[in-house]
Each structure stands twice: as structure tokens, then as C-alpha cells.
Nucleic acid binder design. Structure first.
Length: 603
RNA sequence: CGGGAUGUAGCGCAGUUUGGUAGCGCACUUCGUUCGGGACGAAGGGGACACAGGUUCGAAUCCUGUCAUCCCGACCA
């Protein structure tokens, strides 16, 4: 390809609405154009990058035995109603774009494809003998993100590879899940990016075990906790740890403390000379259920610890048996609108009585009481007395006439000691999620009544797994991980071009002739080569080549008359003056090496 | 949706306080000189100043409303 024909438009200034490096470089290099919030056009060079990633993904997925398909983007609401996700995905802060057709039927624009694929498979496959299968597609997805940001990182229209596997037994699902885990590691390695596999919450997709693949980068939206020995890594949403040791409170008879205006842990501790770990703090929340009921939650946790909202959501769902849309705090306003008297916020103990709810207009009449292990393990502690400006000291759980459900809803933090080995502690870093694999189990097959006949001749819901990779996000994440102050340094396997030939001075006929000759030769060898034949000054061409990040740069300049060229590696800036023939040989060797690596690994 | 900020040429910005009919740098066009790290000179082209009302002899500037974009929280590949 010729730069003169590439409609290459690069920007010197950084567009004001781009915050992170990778987004700025994509815009400056002319790779993408914004059309609306979270909606981007992929320009020709970007499309080449996406195709390279796509092709790596296809090679590896095909190699793993998966079958490629293409599913519709327009989904009938009925399908989503059957799985029970229509409301959650469209109402309130739901992320599914939806519309009605001319017959007034509801449709959604596919944010994910479990419903569609499960329906198809259940219609098509009826026997365990036809299983397992693993189907994937590479396709544009739509999610009406509450806040699109960072260019392709969180866009509303994006390219994703998603795969769905169907099994007759759980063990077989686990097998495929492990194979996908391995395949993903190969895909990311092929793409030339470093990822960390972390344990993850399965979130809205639901189901059992799940793992995310993170590109580590300071701009990442997720917080990752890893153990110092490298054996454990998890998203903070999921991470488990040992709480720091509490400062034990000596045994004594319960006393009441006067604690005027000491409604925060800090003020309580400094005035009463106690340690946060000696307190059981109580947080009052409301679970807004899908069936439009509202369940008050009373959560107790040790004073020096914080609640992990994801874990809380999961435990509250499990214990209440209801689908929860959201969890919000109970505020004085909310009490008022329920026609309830005000509660002594700041001095509430785990034994707050259900009686206080009896006059509520629409809330459930008793608390769902959860206590985090950190608080449940305290022998003697300080807690609110359920009276304004009053706390109690030396309280025990036996004294309180309540039996909350013991759970882990504590937020693990950097510095906490690990579950698998108390000698190890957690460190934190940020990451960009580029892949996620899930063992869905039978969640969707049950909801959609998708069954097969098992070996005993009985109907059984399919065992399912699902596996996603954000293709367009991955492209940007690769830049976030590979750039310098001059621009992008694409890993060669996903670079839009492998080499750029820069003719330093187009006026010089020797340079032009030699440049064109090398261009033809590299092209005939199947190398993705770009030639900068623009009538620009050398400096401009060098700046552009650095900015757009082509891995190899071959400059045909002053030494062209003696067949000498300059070969530079973009990422290392290592540069050599070589005879043209030798430079070509070296290039072929370097580029083919990266390609054969790809092929041999996939066997 | 809540909190904060910004909308002036393709991009980056000034002008808004104190109303007087739009400017700078980059990019673009033409000519000349230059030609290995975003050249220089000269001459050009491009703007209903986000939109809609209002105040005024006169509005980018003042008032009201709307919309869009970005940042901080919930969502996720």
C-alpha cells in the first residue's frame, strides 16, 4: 500500500476529549473517528488491525474445535422474556438498545447472544451423542453503556468474539472451559499483549466459575489483586482474603457509652479510645427486586472493613431467592416516604428490631440480616445501642437476640493476607478486561427449557459455557501497553503493516527507484508493506511512521546510490545501515519468525 | 440519573469579565526557496460562534430554555 493513497491524516494536537494515551494515539494516527458518544468509525488502517486480531482469534478458536457462525443482531423480546433477562436489560439502567417494529413487536439489539444460541441449539440438537459443541461468532455488539468512555475501551457499539459451548455433563463443560482458558492465553500471546488471568464475578451473565483476562495498565477500569507468589489473582469484586487481625477487646460486662455526635467510626474511635476493629458497624440497605418488592437489608461488618457490593449483591440474591435489580442505601428520606419514624443512624446495632418495619408502606416487614465473617468472629465488641447518641461496649453475639446469616461480603484489599497461604499478601494493580470465560452451567438452558436426551433416556438441560473477547477493545488495550512518546508501537502480529519503506527524498531518482524495487520485492513475498511515497520532507514521514507505529521502518535515503538502506525497529529504536539485499533478508527472517511462531503453536 | 466542566474553521485554542459584527497556531490550496526528525516566505480558501427564544439601535459576549461532548460514581468485552 502507498501512503499517498492511504488517506492518512495525522494530527499534531491531541483532541481535547481523549483522556488516555491509547485513545489519543488512535485519534492522532487517524485510526478511528467518533460519530456519537461511544460510536466510532474504524478507518482503513484500524480495520486492518481488527482483521489481524480476528484472524488470530479464528485460527485459535478453529484450532480448539470451535465452529464459527454469525447470529442475528436483532433479537425478539420474547426470547429475552423467556430467559428472564428482558426487564433487567431494558428497564431502568438496562443496557440493551430496544425498539419496536411496524407490528409493534419489541426487539433488542444484541448485547450478548445466550438467548439466541440456546434457542437454536435446543431446536437442533436432541441427543447427548451430538454433544459437545462450541460455536463462536465475531460480531458487532450493542450496549447502551451508562457512561461510554476512553474511545474503544467502553463503547456502545463494539466488536466482540463470543463463543458458547453445550455439554451433556458438567465435567465436559469444565474440560472445554479449561481448553478455552488455554486457547485464550495463546490468543493474547499471539497478539503480543501481556495479560493476567484473574478469578472474576460472573455478574449479569450469571452462572458459576468465571475468569477474566486483564491487560495490566494504569488506565484500567478494574482493580486486580494478586498474591506475592503469583499463585492467586482476582478481580477485587471477587477477591477473597484473610482480614487483618482484630485488636481483641477484653472480656467485661456490657456497658453503655454516651457517644453524642460520634456517628462515624473515626469520631467514635478517637473519642472512646477504641480501635476500628473492635466495632461492629451496621449498614442498612434496600434490595430492589425484579418482582417489585423491596427487601430491607441489615448488614454487619467489622468497623475497619468495607463491604464489597458485588459480593453483597450475590449473597443477598442467594439468601432471598429473588432477582435483585439494585441495592441502595436506606436514608432518612426513604423512611419518611414509607411513613416510618426516623431511626438512630450512626448508633444502630445488629439487633435493630424488625418491629420498626411493621408500618412500612411497601417494604418487606423484616430485615434480611447478613453478617460478615470479620464481625461474626469478634468475641467482645462495640456496637450501636439503637438509641440516639448511645453505643454499647463488651457486647457478644450471644447477648444480641439475633442470628444473622454468616457470609463473606468483605472487600479484600492490598496488604491483606491470602487465603491459600497466610504468608503471602495481596498487591493491587489496574487492568483492562479483554476476555472473560464463564461456566454458565444450566442457568440459561433451564430458563429457556433447552434440553437434550441423556444416556438414561431422560430430558436434561444443556450444560453451557460462554467465552468472550473484546476485539476492538483488545486493539486499543494493545496500544495502551505498547507506546512511547512518539506514538504507537504495534506488536507485529496485529500491526496494520509490518514494514514501512520511507523514501527520504522523492526528488532523488535513486532513492525512488530503490525504494520501489524493495517495495515490489517485499510485497511479492507476502509481507504487509507500506511505502511512503509522499512528496513530504523526511522529518514529516519519520514522525508519521513513528506515530502510526509500524514495527519496522526501512529508510531509503542518501546512501541509495550505493544500495545502502537503514533498518529500524520501532519498539526498540535499534537502527542499522545495511545493504539493501541484506536488509530485505533480515526483514524476511524477522517477520517470518513471528508468523511461523503463530502457525507452529496452533498445531 | 446525581456531581463537575466545556461547546468559536478538520484539530488545538484566544476573544465572553467591560456588547460594536470574529482572530491565532496546525491542517488545506497556489507559487517560490528548501529537502534525514512535524521547513521558510508570499498569496489564498474555509466559520448562520451548539441550537431555540429573549433583551438591545447592535449579541460569540447579557438573560432563559434545550441539546451535545468530556470528567467523577453505578454498567461491562
Amino acid at each position: 500500500m502507498r501512503v499517498s493513497r492511504l488517506m492518512l491524516v495525522t494530527l499534531r494536537d491531541v483532541p481535547a476529549d481523549a483522556e488516555i494515551t491509547s485513545h489519543q494515539l488512535l485519534l492522532r494516527g487517524g485510526y478511528i473517528r467518533r460519530i456519537a458518544a461511544g460510536v466510532y468509525a474504524y478507518m482503513p488502517m484500524m480495520w486492518r488491525v481488527l482483521n489481524k486480531i480476528t484472524s488470530i482469534v479464528q485460527t485459535r478458536m478453529d484450532g480448539s474445535g470451535a465452529l464459527q457462525t454469525l447470529l442475528p443482531q436483532l433479537h425478539p423480546a420474547e426470547l429475552w422474556e423467556r430467559s428472564g433477562r428482558w426487564k433487567g436489560y431494558t428497564a431502568g439502567e438496562g443496557i440493551m438498545f430496544n425498539l419496536t417494529d411496524r407490528q409493534n413487536r419489541n426487539f433488542g439489539l444484541g448485547p450478548t447472544h445466550e438467548e439466541v444460541i440456546t434457542t437454536i441449539i435446543s431446536e437442533l440438537l436432541h441427543s447427548y451423542k451430538q454433544l459437545p459443541v462450541n460455536l463462536y461468532q465475531i460480531q458487532t455488539k450493542f450496549r447502551d453503556e451508562i457512561r461510554p468512555r476512553f474511545g474503544l475501551m467502553r463503547s456502545r457499539e463494539f466488536i466482540m468474539k463470543d463463543a458458547y459451548s453445550f455439554h451433556s455433563q458438567e465435567i465436559d463443560l469444565k474440560d472445554t472451559y479449561e481448553r478455552m482458558n488455554k486457547t485464550y492465553k495463546e490468543i493474547f500471546a499471539d497478539c503480543g499483549i501481556n495479560t493476567v488471568a484473574v478469578y472474576a464475578d460472573s455478574g449479569a451473565i450469571g452462572g458459576g466459575a468465571s475468569q477474566e483476562f486483564m491487560v495490566t495498565a494504569d488506565s484500567g477500569e478494574d482493580l486486580i489483586l494478586t498474591s506475592s507468589d503469583g499463585l492467586y489473582a482476582a478481580n477485587q469484586e471477587k477477591a477473597e482474603s484473610r482480614p487483618p487481625k482484630a485488636n481483641p477487646l477484653d472480656k467485661a460486662e456490657v456497658i453503655e457509652l454516651e457517644t453524642p455526635d460520634q456517628i462515624t467510626i473515626e469520631s467514635l474511635c478517637s473519642t472512646q479510645e477504641i480501635h476500628p476493629s473492635q466495632i461492629v458497624k451496621v449498614i442498612l440497605m434496600l434490595a430492589l427486586n425484579e418482582d417489585e418488592t423491596t427487601q430491607p437489608l441489615l448488614i454487619a461488618i467489622r468497623g475497619d472493613q468495607e463491604v464489597n457490593e458485588t459480593k453483597l449483591m450475590n449473597m443477598a440474591t442467594k439468601e432471598s431467592g429473588k432477582t435483585i435489580l439494585d441495592i441502595v442505601q436506606i436514608t432518612p428520606d426513604k423512611l419518611k416516604s414509607q411513613g416510618l419514624e426516623q431511626w438512630p443512624f450512626g448508633a444502630i446495632g445488629p439487633d435493630l428490631k424488625d418491629k420498626l418495619l411493621h408500618n412500612a408502606k411497601s417494604w418487606e416487614k423484616s430485615f434480611l440480616r447478613l453478617v460478615d465473617n470479620s464481625a461474626a468472629d469478634l468475641d467482645y465488641f462495640v456496637c450501636g445501642a439503637n438509641k440516639k447518641d448511645t453505643h454499647r461496649k463488651f457486647v457478644t453475639w450471644d447477648l444480641l437476640d439475633v442470628s444473622p446469616i454468616k457470609v463473606d461480603i468483605r472487600k479484600a484489599k492490598a496488604g491483606d493476607h491470602c487465603i491459600h497461604d497466610p504468608k503471602q499478601y495481596l498487591k493491587e494493580c489496574r487492568g483492562i478486561e479483554v476476555g472473560h470465560i464463564f461456566q454458565l452451567g444450566q442457568k440459561y438452558s433451564k430458563a429457556l427449557n433447552a434440553t437434550f436426551t441423556n444416556e438414561e433416556g431422560k430430558q436434561e438441560p444443556f450444560w453451557m459455557g460462554c467465552y468472550g473477547i473484546g476485539i476492538s477493545r483488545l486493539a486499543q488495550a494493545a496500544i495502551e501497553q505498547n507506546n512511547d512518546k512518539e506514538g504507537i508501537c504495534w506488536p507485529i502480529s496485529i500491526a496494520p503493516f509490518e514494514v514501512i519503506i520511507v523514501i527520504a527524498n522523492m526528488q532523488d531518482i535513486n532513492q525512488q527507484t530503490l525504494g520501489e524495487k524493495i517495495y515490489r520485492e517485499l510485497k511479492s513475498l507476502g509481507i504487509d508493506v507500506l511505502i511512503d511515497d509522499r512528496n513530504e520532507r523526511a522529518g514529516v514521514k519519520f514522525k508519521d511512521a513513528d506515530l502510526i507505529g509500524i514495527p519496522w521502518r526501512l529508510v531509503v535515503g542518501r546512501e541509495a546510490s550505493s544500495q545502502q538502506v537503514e533498518l529500524m525497529e520501532r519498539s526498540t529504536k535499534k537502527c542499522k545501515i545495511l545493504g539493501a539485499d541484506i536488509a530485505i533478508k533480515k526483514l524476511i527472517k524477522e517477520i517470518c519468525q513471528s508468523k511461523t511462531y503463530l502457525r507452529t503453536e496452533s498445531l
